[in-house]
Structures are given as structure tokens and as C-alpha cells.
């Protein structure tokens, strides 16, 4: 290849590039303007909570009079945050574990097999995602209260499973579809039974998918307000619900300690998010989308 010495064809490419840039300019400006405006407002929303939580006093000025961290101590004690965070973690871990146990085998069958009634079953699994949580949350809470399962942690876990299991099924299905079914046939032809196929061949290959959907369910459960709100008792509130209560009763407590609590919640979510984005594509956080190949 040492003989190829022609100059790279620079000129045509620059002219086309320039022409494209000129025609693209006004549209690009508008688009980027809208995006930047959106981000500035988003920044304002998050930063005003953050600044307020560190402010001494903040009335009708650009910035607070002075800065302090005492609101965090107050919020921690006033809202019993240690207990709330413990509950949040316990609920999340339980929901993640159970929804994987229930969802992954179902996703396998739905991804691999066709059988009579499959479409109906798929639709039924889809419905909890398509319905507003309040619509099924109120009857669900009523039923759970009837059986004495609501008002405590089991109710919160059960209610949160309703959207989580379908979500696991939806995120796992493309991962399972990616695996060549002949891989399983090959293992069986080598003498592996069904159980061995699952443990030795499928599970190792599904680890990325399982990890991704576990993290997605975790993020959603920590952030899920409505269902937890409807089923939680006083000592089974998760962080969002406690935050909501403290906000709607904000006359009683200082605005800043509510903000401090909001910052604690935010930082918890952001940590989760950073962890999550190591394993999943941002788009997967909102919907079932197959991974775009990045290389």
C-alpha cells in the first residue's frame, strides 16, 4: 500500500461541507436555541433547589444571605430520613429481585415461542404500562387493604411489581431474541438437558440484559410516586412519597429543609443514574428500544 501517493480528495469534500453548513444554519440555530433554552430552565429548576437547601435565608433576592448546611441535619431528623431511605432500599431490592424472577422466564417464552393466545397474553402484560398508575392503583390499593396487605411494606412491594414485571418482560425480550435459538439446540445436541441449557448457556449470555433491566426497574421503583403513595403506611414510605408529604405540608416546616430533602433524593437518583448509564443506553430508560450498535 506504500504506492498509493495520490493526494486525498480534499477540495470536493470541503465545498460540499460548506454548502451544507450554509443551508443548515438557520434551522440549526433554532434547534440548538430551543435545546439550550430547555437546558437552562432545567438547570434553573435543579439549581434553585440546591442553592435554597444551602441558604440561610432567601427572600426576594438573587441569592441567599448566607450559606449553611444545618438544613440537612434538620431534614434528616425531622423526616426520619434514615428510616425512609432504608425502606426505599428494601422495597427497591425486593421489587427488582421478584420482578426478575417472574419476568425473565416469561420473557423467554414470549421471545422464543409462538403459541395460541400469545398476542392476548402479550397485550395483558403491556396494559399495566399503558394505563395511568392511578387508574389501576386505586382498585389495587382497595384490594390490598381488603386483604390487609396495604399500609405496610408488602403492599408497596406488590403494587410496584405491577408495572415492573411487564417492564422486565419488555426490556428482556430483545436481549433474548438476540441469542440465536440454535445455540440452545447446539447445547442440547451436545447432551445438555433443559436446566443445563438455562444455567450454562443462556444465563451467562443474558447477564447484560438482566443487569440492564434490574437497573431500570430500580430507577423506576425509587422514582415511582403514585403506586407507593396509594399503598404505603406511615412507616413504609419511600423517599419520593415522604418528599411529597413534606412539600404538601410545607407551611409547618422551613422551606429549606424540604429543599434539603429534595437534594438528598436528587443525589440518590443521580447516583443510580450514573450507575445505570454504565450498563444501559439512555433511551432504554424510557422505553423498550434495542441497543444501537455503537461501533
Amino acid at each position: 500500500m506504500a504506492t498509493t501517493t495520490e493526494a486525498p480528495p480534499t477540495r470536493p469534500s470541503t465545498t460540499t461541507e460548506r454548502r451544507r453548513r450554509i443551508t443548515a444554519r438557520p434551522a440549526a440555530w433554532i434547534v440548538w436555541g430551543v435545546v439550550i433554552f430547555f437546558f437552562l430552565n432545567l438547570l434553573g429548576v435543579v439549581a434553585s433547589v440546591l442553592v435554597s437547601s444551602f441558604g440561610q435565608r432567601w427572600f426576594d433576592t438573587w441569592l441567599p444571605d448566607g450559606y449553611t448546611t444545618r438544613w440537612y441535619g434538620r431534614a434528616w431528623d425531622e423526616f426520619a430520613l434514615l428510616q425512609v431511605i432504608t425502606v426505599t432500599l428494601q422495597v427497591s431490592v425486593l421489587v427488582v429481585g421478584l420482578s426478575l424472577l417472574i419476568g425473565v422466564p416469561a420473557a423467554y417464552v414470549l421471545a422464543r415461542r409462538s403459541f395460541p393466545g400469545k398476542r392476548v397474553i402479550f397485550l395483558v402484560f403491556l396494559l399495566p404500562i399503558l394505563m395511568p398508575p392511578i387508574t389501576y392503583g386505586i382498585p389495587l390499593a382497595t384490594v390490598l387493604y381488603k386483604f390487609g396487605l396495604a399500609g405496610n411494606m408488602s403492599g408497596v412491594v406488590l403494587a410496584n411489581l405491577v408495572p415492573s414485571v411487564p417492564f422486565v418482560i419488555l426490556t428482556m425480550t430483545p436481549f433474548i431474541e438476540q441469542i440465536d435459538p440454535r445455540m440452545e439446540s447446539a447445547a442440547r445436541m451436545c447432551g445438555a438437558g433443559l436446566r443445563t441449557v438455562f444455567l450454562r448457556v443462556l444465563t451467562p449470555l443474558l447477564v447484560p440484559g438482566i443487569l440492564a433491566s434490574a437497573i431500570l426497574v430500580l430507577v423506576r421503583t425509587v422514582g415511582m410516586f403514585e403506586l407507593t403513595f396509594l399503598t404505603a403506611g406511615p412507616d413504609s414510605q419511600t423517599l419520593v412519597v415522604a418528599l411529597y408529604y413534606s412539600m404538601s405540608a410545607s407551611g409547618i416546616r422551613a422551606q429549606q429543609s424540604v429543599d434539603a430533602m429534595a437534594v438528598i433524593y436528587t443525589s440518590m437518583m443521580l447516583v443510580l443514574l450514573v450507575v445505570a448509564l454504565r450498563y444501559v443506553n439512555p433511551t432504554q430508560l424510557v422505553a423498550r428500544v434495542k441497543d444501537e450498535p455503537e461501533h
Binding site: 432545567l42 429548576v45 434553585s48 433547589v49 418528599l243 412539600m247 433524593y265 437518583m269
Partner: peptide, 19 residues
């Protein structure tokens, strides 16, 4: 862009009140 989705409506509400 994922940040506001993960933050959820409760926190957004608090931020909007301030902002």
C-alpha cells in the same frame, strides 16, 4: 435529558416552585 425523567414529577414540582 434523562435527568428530569429520573427526577420525577415531585422533585420537578419543588424546583419549579422555586424557579
Amino acid at each position: 435529558l434523562v435527568v428530569p425523567i429520573t427526577l420525577g414529577t415531585v422533585l420537578t414540582a419543588q424546583g419549579l416552585l422555586n424557579f
